[in-house]
Design a protein around this nucleic acid. Structure first.
Lengths: 144, 144
DNA sequence: ATTATATGATTACATTCGTAAACGAAAGGA
DNA sequence: TCCTTTCGTTTACGAATGTAATCATATAAT
């Protein structure tokens, strides 16, 4: 049952998670309902996705009579953070800053989060290098 | 030939791209060489990955006798940015800021990039909302 | 010229993902 | 009680991915 969260989550599965995150405790019917207008997937498809999410441990299925009540086992920010971190780690350290900057540019951010970012930046400025070294090859090259 | 960059790039393929980005103009031998110590993939595996990358249009293969000289068709930052943006777009607007903040926290960033971020933040502060609204359900709920 | 080496091309095969049809059983309605 | 709707379960199937073996051929070495 309690499969460890080793497996990643796919694109379509995310769509389902979003619904569950918003609905909180929910069931198949409600989920199918939400999708009705949002996607033209068949109910069958969505049921498959729900099943896979349960298998992967991203959704918890509490039995309720012969139905289930679903809840997310991880919250959205946390999950996205993990995925994003994993993705970023594919890339050379040297350019991570640029990417984060560009993401910042095209995302809407609240005043509160901007404030926290400023704080974090001030912190980092104390020790930030002029240039983050490339860590791509074994033969530590400088450019990538 | 010039297949459009519609297809995404997989995890293993990224590893190969990193090598190519660092080496610049390169060939199979050099790539295999780099991997020798880095991964325990067989040469065969790496050759498959190269082939797929060429097919997908991420690597350009210029014929040189009976060999090829490979170059990346997109630079690393750009590619990562696109992947990351796509990933972030899976999630509710409301929480993007938090995720970016967390990424910032655990990435090394150069002084120059920090500077640019500060500038961008000042810019955003002018119009930033107290809270970015949730855009998950059709029935615009406030929480997700 | 013969053999060994290097390297591109073909084929393979299990797993995951996107997408879905079909089946079975419970429950609600007529 | 019989039919229909609802939901969970089983099965399906092609594409993409991770991982690789094998084959063919051009080149270098002997």
């Amino acid at each position: 049952m309690n499969e460890k969260n080793l497996s990643s989550i796919s694109d379509s599965e995310w769509e389902v998670m979003r619904i569950v995150w918003t609905l909180g405790e929910t069931n198949t019917k409600q989920i199918l309902n939400e999708f009705q207008t949002k996607k033209d997937w068949t109910d069958s498809t969505i049921k498959t996705l729900i099943r896979r999410l349960v298998q992967k441990g991203w959704l918890n299925a509490k039995q309720d009579g012969r139905r289930y009540i679903y809840t997310a086992t991880v919250n959205q920010t946390e999950m996205m953070y993990n995925e994003a971190k994993t993705l970023l780690n594919r890339m050379c350290d040297m350019h991570k800053g640029e990417v984060i900057l560009k993401l910042l540019e095209d995302s809407p951010v609240s005043k509160g989060d901007l404030m926290k970012m400023k704080k974090e930046i001030s912190q980092k400025e104390k020790t930030a290098p002029k240039m983050v070294p490339c860590n791509c090859l074994k033969t530590g090259s400088t450019i990538c």
